[in-house]
Design a protein around this nucleic acid. Structure first.
Length: 416
RNA sequence: GUGGGCGUGGCCAAGCUAGGUCCAAGGCGCCAGGUUGUGGCCCUGGAGAUCGAGGGUUCAAAUCCCUCCGUCCACCCCA
């Protein structure tokens, strides 16, 4: 038997309520903050991600779904949302629009990973990007959006973690401090971290090993090694957030896995710490657009995981409106009634009333059971008697009462 | 890529530790009947399982062993 590929999942009808709920809130959020929706293709030239996400990152090294198309070009299923947005920004000359350009998107993302709680090979993100304005107030706007989204979803007890990792001016020096610090303590590091020391020293900060954690506590903090512009930016961002009453926690060990981040990075964590729990993560990427061949252009954004939001909305018992079911089931007996039932259903639908026929060839009892299991408000019964008198029985399922109504008036009757 | 848990009808699940009484219990769901044309409760009956797959041990395996696959969780990494 065929199954959904590993790490992918069907979103079944009974789950849809959660997804539509989150999408509706996210869309409203984008609208309120003046963001416009942008959809980009599900695949792009491989080079876009190699360039954008970074040669040495795990995503590029071992997680991309890449393939050669029939023309021999290497294509890759989008592993993240920011690079495509930046590509579209450049391709459509959006740098000629008033800056910043504010965009949001819903899109699937693909990474060849080992699935586990909260991690999939295909997942879905709601993302937001503000391009072309490097002012800290834009950072604050993005962080606020992320926070408000979680509020709007009705999620409680979340933590907003914030950090600044500097830019190309100050980060190299900071990394040297970090390496120096760890170099004298290598023997206390776990195996993995010894390997990481040269390649990506920032990663040592969020290693989960106890010994490494202890070292990370005392490690030099990037916010203490920012250059002046970065420091000013960082200070002002915090000032903005305080002014907005966004309760953030400075987390000097917060780092990001993608190469393009500069200055601001942040995450939103749910109350119960699981392994893959980050609901939302983002940051500034002032070098990215230039890296992709555009003019020097600042940018900042975040992405929130749909599956993780769904799971938290469920887990916290947030009441979510369910999609309305069909209003009417039409039960009928006999061929003549069948024709009438068909046209009646059509009339009802044209008036916006959801209607379905009971399954053909079943006893009335079975048809009524069907109506009941669908949870409809009304059943319309068309039998031989009704056919003779040109009427139908309209049964109120909740009350268990029914009355004869003329066929002509049924649609109007139900419309009220 | 590494480590651990799990894998019995559509779903939940007993049985597996001490192999036979299991041609596999029960519940939900599904189908039919209990009313010549009527739901929800209740009652009766029914369909539906190569016990994840393959191999091995044994007179005998859902139960023991091996391999593989799947799934879940953790590492790695990330939304």
């Amino acid at each position: 038997m065929y199954r959904a590929p590993r790490g992918t999942a069907d979103v079944l009808p009974e789950e849809q309520g959660y997804w539509r709920y989150i999408e509706a809130r996210a869309r409203a959020l984008g609208q309120r903050f003046g963001y416009q929706r942008l959809d980009t293709p599900v695949f792009e030239q491989t080079a876009l991600f190699v360039r954008g996400v970074g040669q040495g990152t795990d995503i590029v090294e071992k997680e991309m779904y890449s393939f050669l198309d029939r023309g021999g070009d290497s294509m890759t299923l989008r592993p993240e949302g920011t690079a495509p947005v930046c590509r579209a920004y450049l391709e459509h000359g959006m740098h000629n629009q008033p800056q910043p350009v504010r965009l949001y998107y819903f899109s699937p993302a693909f990474r060849y990973e080992r699935p586990q709680a909260g991690r999939f090979r295909q997942h879905h993100q709601f993302g937001v990007e503000a391009l072309g304005d490097g002012d800290p107030s834009v950072d604050a706007e993005i962080v606020e959006m992320a926070w408000r989204l979680m509020e709007d979803l009705g999620l409680r007890d979340l933590t907003l973690l914030l950090n600044s990792i500097g830019d190309s001016e100050c980060r190299p020096a900071y990394l040297e401090h970090l390496r120096a610090y760890y170099a004298s303590r290598v023997e206390r590091l776990c195996q993995d971290c010894r390997g990481r020391l040269e390649r990506s020293p920032l990663r040592l900060l969020d290693c989960k090993q106890e010994a490494c954690q202890a070292l990370a506590q005392e490690a030099p903090r990037s916010i203490d090694h920012l250059c002046h512009p970065c420091r000013d930016h960082w200070e002002e961002l915090m000032k903005c957030l305080r002014r907005l009453d966004i309760p953030f926690r400075v987390e000097p060990r917060l780092v990001r896995g993608l190469d393009y981040y500069t200055r601001t990075v942040f995450e939103i964590q749910p109350p119960e710490e699981r392994a893959q729990s980050t609901l939302c993560a983002g940051g500034r990427y002032d070098g990215l657009i230039q890296e992709l061949g555009g003019p020097p252009t600042p940018g900042i954004g975040f992405a929130a995981g749909m599956e993780r939001m769904v799971s938290n909305v469920k887990g916290q018992g947030v009441p979510v409106p369910q999609e309305e079911s069909v209003r009417v089931v039409i039960a009928y007996l006999g061929d003549e009634a069948k024709g009438e039932a068909l046209s009646l259903a059509s009339q009802l639908r044209s008036k916006g009333i959801g209607a379905v026929l009971a399954p053909a060839g079943k006893s009335l009892r079975a048809q009524m059971r069907y109506a009941n299991s669908l949870g409809v408000s009304y059943a319309l019964i068309l039998g031989e008697e009704e056919m003779r008198s040109g009427s139908a029985l309209l049964r109120d399922m909740a009350k268990g009462e029914q009355r004869v109504v003329p066929l002509q008036g049924v649609a109007e009757e139900l419309a009220n």
